[in-house]
């Protein structure tokens, strides 16, 4: 390597280090300040907490985050599972069934991607009111699933279309029903696509704020983003508790990202790189 390019590499490495510090510092600050007492927080943003007593974390968890985490897990797990199955079935039907309207169904579901959920907050709110689904688990779950179907359908379709038909033909000849073939032969082959789709769904549902804000009220159905938002107004003066609550809210997704990194990356890319 020439001296010139060594210098360039050095500068870029320096830049990368600075960039990483810019990203990591606020997150570490949040984690560490969560241990501080209120007077320590007002003392100086640079000081370290006098003790690592997790009382803020325990209080935030017990008072706000615990129940919300259970709710978020409920919506995320069930919503993701439903989305993957429903989108997978539709994708499979478009590929393997004789259907005149194949192209129309394909375009119809895919076009759902063009409609931003934010625009429809009011009509869906009204629809949930009319059907008595407002502020119910089902009432929040259904919009989550519906808005994730188009993208998930696209992901599942792009993978399924590459599967060899022979395996399924063999299964059919062995007496497998359509459903048996789909659930026991096709879906297991789709594991990589399912993982990416599921991670994208989970990221969307776990982090959603707008739907939960508009389609639910009160504490019973509060998800994590709503609970930390309500912490801000109720514990306004107790910043240590708020910061520890934010850390607890951020942690599950960060942990999931650390373990399932490759699916986060492929998910993010499939949304942007043309099929």
């Amino acid at each position: 390597m020439s001296a010139g390019s060594k210098v360039k590499r050095g500068i870029v490495h320096l830049m990368m280090t600075v960039y990483m510090i810019i990203i990591v510092f606020p997150l570490m600050w949040m984690l560490i300040s969560g241990f501080k007492t209120n007077s320590e927080i007002f003392g100086s943003p640079w000081s370290l907490p006098s003790s690592l007593d997790p009382k803020n974390y325990i209080y935030a968890w017990q008072t706000y985050i615990q129940r919300a985490t259970l709710n978020s897990i409920f919506f995320t797990v069930l919503g993701t599972a439903l989305t993957v199955i429903i989108a997978g079935m539709a994708a499979y039907a478009v590929i393997r069934f004789r259907m005149k309207a194949r192209y129309i169904v394909f375009i119809f579901i895919l076009s759902g991607m063009m409609l931003a959920p934010q625009c429809s907050l009011i009509p869906i709110y009204k629809m949930l009111g009319i059907t008595h689904l407002y502020n119910t688990r089902l009432g929040l779950l259904l919009p989550y699933v519906a808005y994730r179907i188009p993208f998930s359908f696209f992901m599942m379709w792009s993978f399924m279309v590459t599967l060899p038909i022979e395996v399924e033909e063999a299964a059919t000849i062995d007496g497998c029903s359509v459903f048996g073939t789909f659930f026991r032969v096709v879906m297991p082959m789709c594991k990589p696509a399912i993982a990416t789709t599921a991670v994208m769904c989970a990221r969307f549902i776990w982090n959603d704020f707008a739907f939960a804000l508009v389609f639910t009220e009160g504490k019973a159905l509060q998800t994590v983003p709503l609970s930390i938002f309500s912490m801000r107004s109720t514990s306004q003066t107790d910043w240590g508790v708020l910061l520890s609550g934010l850390t607890l809210a951020a942690l599950p997704m960060v942990i999931m990202y650390i373990f399932l990194q490759k699916y986060f990356v492929s998910g993010a890319n499939s949304g942007a790189v043309k099929g």
Partner: peptide, 23 residues
């Protein structure tokens, strides 16, 4: 076929497209 496509089509139709018109 109906069992496979109806859930997706109905959910997208009712909760993604219909609200736009309702709006």
């Amino acid at each position: 076929l109906l069992v496979f496509i109806a859930p997706a089509v109905l959910m997208v139709g009712l909760l993604v497209f219909f609200p736009v018109l309702l709006n």
